[in-house]
Design a protein around this nucleic acid. Structure first.
Lengths: 210, 210
DNA sequence: GAATAAACCGCATATTTATGTGATCTCATC
DNA sequence: GATGAGATCACATAAATATGCGGTTTATTC
């Protein structure tokens, strides 16, 4: 039996979902609050549900802040957002805060039910549009870098050595070349990157600017 | 009509999928190669398909590298991975490279078909398990740091100076303290972090390990 | 009120880094 | 076959870093 809790301030929607879910023979939905504060009050003296449906726009504390607190106190609760917001920022914040699913409010009741089942089985239910936005996050950083640094393969080797915290001597050993060669490469690297210390090279490299 | 291309080296699987998709009345699947290289060769003189199914383990170039090249040359192609790998690393790499969907090979043919339709409508088809892994990425950074480094505020100031590429002298100037004090702090920082060079401190810091 | 931690300062020195100048060899390009 | 870029090596030196030792002052804690 999956126990489901709801935090949603729209009474009509809340009652509708609660009744529908409670009617299912593999679910029970007795806990329905219209604010995070109330839910936290409830959880102080009761066992947490398995799954919690959470709105974002709520009286008092926002649902996103709510996720953080609830996940911290009761990490085993699976939280699914159920909201009208589909902007990347809210989606991202919700996931970072600890939500595992994200549905839009126009989702049909049977789909909500399925998503809850999916969630407890280790899935991460999202509408395809939401999934696409999540994925777009991975493609963002790309267009950022246009590094014309243009280091040679050998020079990149040396940079990697520096990033690994090696001294010139150890870099020389690693590549079986003389320390003066390492110096020569580093001189050229500095010229190309317009820097004049190891520190700057390491920082640039780890920031993805090379 | 959705035109679908396939890059998959297992002939049996490739033919099976190709025939099935080509049989659908809203799809056409004429382009099926067993390596990225062949696909690139083909694309030089033919119009790219709308959707491309891509394996990861391939003879020659890997599918992940393939995504990068194809997305760069033909950004409008929607790429969906179809692979046996379900480790976070491969999933992540694929998405960063530009894939928009990620299915496991045991997915049924009708589900593949649905996923393709979903993809062209702006969705991001993934199995629930994959979606969960993607989402876990957002929760990762949290438990990551358990750094008992425990630097004092002043020590953190100094570290920031190092990361900014400053010399001891410049750090001393920045905080209006003597260079010997900077040395003293750095000595303590090295002790706490178990390192013995600026380079390592900078690397640790930029990796979020402080 | 003793102990501890943090921030501050100084002196000394060995090691490492940054930078200059100059050279040889290979490979690709024109 | 000259030109140029890349990789290799050498010698030299000033500057910066790493590390040892020592110390004072000011909070906070027990």
């Amino acid at each position: 039996m999956i126990e489901v809790g709801i935090v949603e301030d729209n009474v009509k929607i809340r009652n509708l979902i609660q009744r529908y879910l409670d009617m299912q023979d593999n679910m029970s939905c007795k806990i329905a609050m219209d604010s995070v504060e109330e839910m936290l009050e409830y959880l102080k003296v009761h066992k947490p549900p398995n799954v919690m449906l959470m709105d974002i726009q709520l009286p008092g504390m926002s649902g996103i802040k709510g996720i953080e607190i609830i996940k911290k106190e009761y990490p085993s609760v699976e939280i699914m957002m159920l909201t009208i917001y589909h902007d990347s920022h809210k989606i991202f914040d919700s996931l970072v805060a600890g939500a595992s699913g994200y549905l839009l409010k126009h989702t049909s009741l049977p789909e909500i039910k399925e998503s809850i089942e999916n969630l407890v089985q280790g899935g991460a239910p999202m509408s395809p549009q939401i999934a696409r936005k999540v994925i777009q996050h991975f493609n963002q950083p790309k267009p950022e870098h246009k590094p014309e640094s243009d280091l040679t393969a050998r020079e990149q080797d040396i940079v990697n050595g520096l990033v690994d915290g090696l001294s010139y001597k150890l870099i020389a050993d690693r590549f079986d070349i003389s320390i003066d060669t390492v110096r020569a490469h580093i001189r050229n690297i500095y010229k190309k990157l317009h820097v004049n210390s190891k520190a700057e090279v390491i920082a640039k490299s780890l920031r993805g600017e090379i």
